[in-house]
Amino acid sequence: MKIGNNSLKFNGVYIKDSSTAVGPLESAGPLKDYFDYRFPDLYCNADSWEKAEINLVKTCIDDLIKKTNLSDTEIDFIVGGDLNNQDAVTNYAVRDYNIPLLGVYSACATSAEAMIVASSLVDSANAKNIIVTSSSHNATAERQYRNPTEYGGARPDSATFTVTGAGTCLITNQKSDIKIESATIGRVLDAKQKDANDMGSAMAPAASQTIKVHLEDLGRSAEYYDLILTGDLSSVGKPILIDILKEQEIDIEHNHNDCGLLIYDRKKQNVFAGGSGAGCSSAVTFGYIMSMLRENKLKKVLLVATGALMNPIMIFQKESIPAIAHAVSLEKI
């Protein structure tokens, strides 16, 4: 049901289970124990970067199907996307399953967009079980958005490091201990940032807008949530977000964190301003956050997945980088 300007309130939408798979650097990071599969190298048992990312997604989906004990016919749809052109990885990853696909794209906010689409379908009784997936791979993102992986040009400290990882979950109408309670669909916001090596600055305003709209639509204050978790604002975007919201009298200083800052140890790992990518928010949410909710260490979490809608062609045409943020509220029952 629509609530307020841009939000949806769900009734009876739950996460049954989840699965995550990550690459080598994430497997060495502080959240390593929360991921289901850890690949020791970037190739993930494949012979190209794209096939490696496909393997990450398939590993998660296979594991999720096994965990939830559902057959292909019991799963209504797969909703998901990735950062590759034409959503290539998701399309190829699901070709071996006998399940219909809805491909979605919101850059690194794809994870939350897929959850919102799936939750709406379940909420409206158009589906009972939906697999949600999103992924990214450091090398596929590098070659598509930036330079060849071995190129030696120096990158500035504001750059982010694309996470190699995939996250899936099963959204269902059957009651479980984790509820998808509400969501807010983000508006595209262009803060006139042009630096493709500084996505945090481009995305923080969009995140602030979505958080503000979400709280207004649902009539809540920021303290309602134990954790407001942005996707990949990095060390540059985090203080910008906090400051923008402070100016609008919303204080999230004590309950805000960022998936990109959680997944790596920036002191020991050379990841510039932090992690990014559609796999960053999904691996952290479906791995770490799910565990925290299950263990009652968190009760109410607002995931605000952030996406810099960066297109290399538009950047070459001197355009700025629009951004989007979608919010999903998760509650432990």
Partner: peptide, 30 residues
Amino acid sequence: YDKLGQFAKAGLAVPVTGFANSMTASALEY
């Protein structure tokens, strides 16, 4: 090379080494 280049900044990009790196990196990538 990419790790050295991250440290050396333009110091490794401007000399002919940078040119060689850009071609080898592209060849490897594709």
